[in-house]
Amino acid sequence: MLQVDNIQAFYETAHILDGTSLEVGNDEVVTLLGRNGMGKTTLVRIIAGIDPPQQRGGTITWEGEDITDLESYEIARRGIGYVPQGRRVFGSLTVVENLEVIARAPADGAEPWDVDRVFEFFPRLQERRTSLARTLSGGEQQMLAIGRALMTNPTLLLMDEPSEGLAPILLGVIRDTLAALKGSGLSILLVEQNLGLALALGDRILLMSEHGKIVWEGTPDKLKDDHAALSTHLGV
């Protein structure tokens, strides 16, 4: 459903992405692993149409349509949900307002996400429904960022490092959440540095190296046994 083909991206003179390509299929969870500074976040932001680098090339195709040059809101309205790095919840809005402010009906007949369903999914958020988002803990903010993206009723979820800065116990909550979402017919492109999360969730894992090159691709089981790939590209 999502095809990223030969993306080139520069910031000033730095060549961040040099020919990055990947694909996400229907109902598939693809995990993009890589160390800091390899261009993972840049790639997600380019797919989401945010703040494009000065120069870029390549094409992004979504369900047969070229969405490379669309504005970020147009891309979101086509069913691509976005969970930004660092959560970025709307701090001066309450939990409920965070969910309602970007709510949108689903394109097809899928079971729609609404505030009640998000609260069913994250009971913790219901307890804090009238709190301002900036008073939430890191884990609660991550739940809210995911719930907020679900309220746009996406068919693909872009998630940029949901595990970042979370305590191990909250990591478990997020992992269970993503596992549940995976079973609900949603495709996910998960960008991570956390190997455990990637191994637990990904149908397919991609390793990204310098300049956004995809240097390895395979299943979690295959990655577990490939010690050479792990040490070269992830340093583990």
């Binding site: 504005e71 979101a76 709307f90 809005l93 307002e97 402010v101 970007i102 949108r104």
Partner: peptide, 17 residues
Amino acid sequence: RAGVDDRETVAALGINI
């Protein structure tokens, strides 16, 4: 209010900012 907090994220979630 959401736009005052974070314009970029509001747009990336489907609002024509």
